[in-house]
Write a protein that binds this DNA or RNA. Sequence first.
DNA 1: TTGTACGCGTTATCAA
DNA 2: TTGATAACGCGTACAA
Lengths: 348, 348
Amino acid sequence: MKRKITLKQIARELDVSISTVSKALRNSAEISEDTKQKVQAFAKLYNYKPNNIALSLKNRKTNTIGIIIPEIVHHFFSKVISGVETVANKRGYNVIIGLSNESFSKEVINMEMLANGSIDGFILSISKETLQLQDYHHFNETMSQGMPIVMFDRVVPDINCDKIIVDDFNGAKKAVAKLIKNGCETIAILTTKDYVSVGKLRTQGYLEALQENDITPEANLILKLDDTLDYEVHLDALETEIEQLFKLNPSVDGVFAVNELYALTAMKVARKLGLEIPKDIQVIGFTDGVLSKHATPSLTTVSQHAQQMGEKAAHLLIDKLESENEDEEEVYQTLVIETELIERESTK
Amino acid sequence: MKRKITLKQIARELDVSISTVSKALRNSAEISEDTKQKVQAFAKLYNYKPNNIALSLKNRKTNTIGIIIPEIVHHFFSKVISGVETVANKRGYNVIIGLSNESFSKEVINMEMLANGSIDGFILSISKETLQLQDYHHFNETMSQGMPIVMFDRVVPDINCDKIIVDDFNGAKKAVAKLIKNGCETIAILTTKDYVSVGKLRTQGYLEALQENDITPEANLILKLDDTLDYEVHLDALETEIEQLFKLNPSVDGVFAVNELYALTAMKVARKLGLEIPKDIQVIGFTDGVLSKHATPSLTTVSQHAQQMGEKAAHLLIDKLESENEDEEEVYQTLVIETELIERESTK
DNA sequence: TTGTACGCGTTATCAA
DNA sequence: TTGATAACGCGTACAA
């Protein structure tokens, strides 16, 4: 088991100095052809590769991006990672991941770990608990140490940094408008509590669409689900809530759900109550994941272009990392990714 | 924008030496209470944290695990990552990810990048292209440099390292036996070409179950799908192939599919042909992902305990990293994770 | 009790 | 054309 070879070892073997080896390998004009040949051949033979850690220390640059997300077993987030990874690799960066598991303390700990030299900058989406607590000190501290942050999807106005967001408002509005155009007259929304920023925005889009079409919103058609509950586990609870909504409002002929799971569950409950989709009731979800595509009937959804979000986030961060403007006024941008309505079988 | 503070700066500010600061912070008995207090207070004020990169270089240990997987937008793999991450964090390690995208060259490049000092060891699952080419030199080279590898799920006997595998053979066998017990007489299998090790093993399990029940396998009930094709994209092609199978063999009353997508597509085609599930035809899949759970009807599947695989892989790797036996005979183990049949609505 | 020197692997600067 | 030295940030053996 031979350890990785270093400059020092090569130098010793060839009986030259370390700096000669270093220069020879970088093809410096200072070094004679002879020596270069000799050194390069030897290095190749022993498969020399410079040690990244040493380079990081010397250059005070790790060429690594840290990404903190609430949950990886989730189509949207893994798609974003995939986008980040693609761009990062192409531009010579590695990606290191931290999972907050929707927990404030894990988010803080993870960020601290990575911020101590392991990475050059963060791409992250805020955990639900952090959103609830509204404690953002760790983000501000990190940035004040000169480490840039790009936030995506779940963001808050309170924090001054680059952001990539989905046009949740218009996405929702388009979806609901579509339902109305398709003839729906009583449209319910399945959404989250308001502290989840995207849930709130989607709810606003829903209301706006109704208003533009002179439909008066009804409080009992708006179901704000408490998603601190893990509905993957408490699926029954979710079904019960939705079933009640349907029973209390038998005239519902359209449902807009702010995520896939709510939409699928709505379809399931509807079928259970003997309703046909899309004949009796039409459904549109948000987030174009595998579930929507392979559901039966397949689900019309608002696609967020998650991959693209990841790619843009990576570009934004790397651009910032590689721009020289140490002093220049910090100017932060917010990129808005437009949504796309993907029509499938759950609408007419 | 204040950069992170270092020992050197603290030393300068307090007018003591660097090593005094270092020792004071580690609460060394060598240092007087007075100095300790002073230093620790100052460090706390400026939120001093040692630089990971410097520590890595010094200790020749990064406390980071590299994980290389073919694809992250995939329930199974992201679940494994989640498992790895949980254990890694608990034991003081970070996780850095590389995606091979099922490509041999990306796998090689990614591994080389990470192997140059960025990580202490690998957890990986082999890409399809690598399996096809049967070129495993990069694994062997990495290991010969003293960097341990733990492989999971997609493994090959040719490589000598720790492995975590699913009991694909018995999982498949149990599933098919279940179909037989449920009264199926003509059972088809939707599988992959044989170079995918797990596909091959699951096919063998299928055959074994038939044999034990005195059923003669029929070649035209075994559909080996070429999964170099990305069926997420070419879903139509997949449907066509399965539809042909059904049409050519109208007596089929049971289907065993080696992954979720095949299983779901089989259900879809069956319904299209007017068959009722599970009355006319029963279906079991492999891999317990979101699709199976939320399909209609929900899919009976063989669960692989992906999270657990990740956890065990992480423990295995870290144990090896932290064991002192530099010299000791390398002894590699292969852990087999038992599968579990999760019964849902697609079987009687 | 405190400080000096060294090494981890690299590169850049300057001297020989 | 080559080599010695310093520096990146840290911890530790050893000297003061």
